[in-house]
């Protein structure tokens, strides 16, 4: 059973859908397609058969640069010790309204 080199060479596209106005696009999955336009049409059929979206992005998977889980700690740690970035850090009297 030969699969032909054609489909194998189709790039992988990551699909992002905006569920409705006011929400961000969210990653929903991926698919293979020869180009972006066909990826978009294919994404409509695969991921929005029940009006799950009002806008779709497709991004070639190879174009995405991702942070590595291995360096998760060193990458995100700098944010951990800056509690003063959160409003609850501050001591203020309890009887001040609208604060």
């Amino acid at each position: 059973m030969s699969d032909g080199p054609t489909e194998r060479s189709w790039p992988l596209w990551e699909v992002f859908v905006r569920a409705k106005r006011g929400l961000s696009h969210t990653h929903v999955g991926s698919l293979h397609a020869p180009d972006a336009t066909m990826a978009l049409r294919n994404a409509r059929d695969v991921y929005t058969r029940r009006q799950e979206g009002v806008s779709i992005w497709v991004v070639e998977a190879s174009s995405i640069t991702a942070s590595s889980p291995d360096e998760k700690d060193s990458f995100f740690d700098p944010a951990a010790d800056k509690v003063y970035r959160h409003p609850t850090f501050y001591d203020v009297p309890e009887d001040v309204e609208y604060l």
């Binding site: 032909g4 054609t6 489909e7 397609a33 020869p34 180009d35 336009t37 066909m38």
Partner: peptide
């Protein structure tokens, strides 16, 4: 197979 080939040809032409 011909559909996949046609899709490739179309992508090439569009590009």
């Amino acid at each position: 197979a011909w559909v996949r080939e046609a899709a490739n040809a179309y992508a090439t032409k569009q590009a």
